[in-house]
Nucleic acid binder design. Structure first.
Length: 344
DNA sequence: AAGACGGGGTT
DNA sequence: AACCCAGTCTT
C-alpha cells in the first residue's frame, strides 16, 4: 500500500530536524513559512536564529518589522517576513497567543496558504489534510504517471484530490512528512534513486521510462534585464540610504540612492541624470566607479546589472547615517555584499 | 489564469 | 543557462 510504504521509508530515512522535535504550532508555523520555496539546508540556520531570539509568538510580535526583516536578510521572498510579523502580532494581540487549530482558520492567516495550512493542521493537530508541495507533485506525478501540469488549475485540483485519497488518516502527520521527505531524498528531481526505491515496482513513470519527463510544468517565465546605478555618498564617515517603498522587489529593505536606467550608464550620462543633479545640486563632489564590470545579481526572473558609484563630498550629508551603522539595516544581498566588499 | 516575488544549489 | 526548492499573493 502506497501510504504504508511511504511511512515505512520515512521511519528509516528521516533527517533529524529541529522542527520535528515539536508540535508547537508557533514553531511549526515558523518553520513552514521559512521553508516555502526554500531548501531545508538554507532555512535551518534562520530557524535556529529565530527560535533563539523569539522563543514564543509574543517575542516575535513585540519586535519591529525592521528587526524581523534584518533577521530574515538573505533568505529571500521578503513578503514572507512581513507577513510573518503581521501574523505574529495578530495571534499575540487578538488570539491570546494561540494559533487556530483548524485548516480553515489557519488559512486565513497572512502568508498561510493551502500547503502551510495543511502542514500545520496535520503536524500539530493530527488533522488528515494532505500537503501538496513540490516534492509531493513530483512523487505523485511519477508514481501515478500524471500528465497534468503541476502549475495548471486543473493539475492543482487533480493532485490535491489524489493526495486526499492517499493520505493515511491514522497518522497524517507522519505520512505528510514522509512523502515530502521521500520526494526530497529518494524521488529527487534529477537522478532519483529508483534502484533502491521501495515503490519502484508500482511506479508508472519508471515502467514507461518517463521519470525525466514528469512532473510536467508549464512554461518558465522569461528573465528581464534591469540596470541599476547606486550612488554611494561619502562624507565625514557618513553615507545615505533609502528604504524601498515601491511595489517592486525588496519592499521595505534599505539600499543606497538608486538610479535605474534602460541601458548601462557611463559617468557622463549619470551626471546628466535628473535624479543625480537633484541629489547633488550645487555640491562639490568627486565621482568614481567602484566596479568597472557591472555586478550581475540574478533573481528568479530578473538579472540586475549593477554599478556602484562612489561620490565623495566635502560638505556633510543631509540625513546621512554613520557608515558603521549600515549593518543594522535590512538590506538585499546585493547591497550587503557591496558593503562587505567595499569595507567603509 | 498569469505574474511577481530572492537567493542558493545542481546539472 | 535552466531548473528546482516544505508556496503565497496580486492582478
Amino acid at each position: 500500500m502506497f501510504s504504508s510504504k511511504i511511512r515505512q521509508w520515512y521511519k528509516a530515512n528521516k533527517r533529524a530536524l529541529p522542527w520535528r522535535e515539536s508540535q508547537d504550532p508557533y514553531r511549526i508555523w515558523l518553520s513552514e513559512i521559512m521553508l516555502q520555496q526554500t531548501r531545508v539546508e538554507q532555512g535551518l540556520p534562520y530557524y535556529k536564529k529565530f527560535t533563539e531570539n523569539y522563543p514564543t509568538v509574543f517575542q516575535l510580535a513585540a519586535a519591529s518589522e525592521e528587526e524581523v526583516l534584518k533577521m530574515w536578510q538573505g533568505l529571500g521572498y521578503y513578503s514572507r517576513a512581513r507577513n510573518l510579523h503581521a501574523t505574529a502580532k495578530h495571534v499575540a494581540e487578538n488570539l491570546n497567543g494561540i494559533f487556530p487549530d483548524s485548516y480553515k482558520e489557519l488559512k486565513k492567516l497572512k502568508g498561510v496558504g493551502d500547503y502551510t495550512a495543511s502542514a500545520i493542521a496535520s503536524f500539530c493537530f493530527d488533522i488528515p489534510e494532505p500537503v501538496v508541495d513540490g516534492n509531493v507533485y513530483r512523487v505523485l506525478a511519477r508514481y501515478f504517471g500524471v500528465d497534468f501540469a503541476i502549475n495548471s488549475t486543473e493539475g492543482i485540483k487533480y493532485f490535491k484530490e489524489l493526495a486526499s485519497e492517499l493520505i493515511d488518516k491514522g497518522n497524517p502527520a507522519e505520512y505528510n512528512q514522509g512523502i515530502m521527505e521521500f520526494g526530497a531524498i529518494q524521488c529527487k528531481p534529477q537522478s532519483p534513486k529508483c534502484g533502491t526505491c521501495p515503490l519502484n515496482d508500482g511506479c508508472l513513470a519508471l515502467q514507461k521510462g518517463r521519470i525525466e519527463q514528469l512532473p510536467v510544468k508549464l512554461k518558465k517565465t522569461k528573465v528581464k534585464d534591469r540596470y541599476f546605478n547606486y550612488l554611494v555618498l561619502r562624507s565625514e564617515g557618513e553615507t545615505l540610504i533609502r528604504q524601498r517603498r515601491q511595489k517592486d522587489i525588496w519592499q521595505n529593505l534599505y539600499e543606497f540612492p538608486l538610479i535605474e536606467s534602460k541601458q548601462e550608464l557611463d559617468i557622463q550620462q549619470l551626471e546628466e541624470h535628473p535624479y543625480f543633479t537633484a541629489l547633488l545640486a550645487g555640491a562639490n563632489y568627486s565621482l568614481t566607479l567602484f566596479n568597472a564590470q557591472p555586478k550581475v545579481h540574478k533573481l528568479s526572473h530578473q538579472h540586475l546589472y549593477t554599478k556602484f558609484w562612489v561620490v565623495h563630498l566635502h560638505a556633510p550629508i543631509e540625513n546621512g547615517i554613520p557608515c558603521q551603522e549600515l549593518d543594522e539595516y535590512p538590506m538585499p544581498v546585493l547591497i550587503a555584499n557591496f558593503v562587505e566588499e567595499y569595507s567603509f
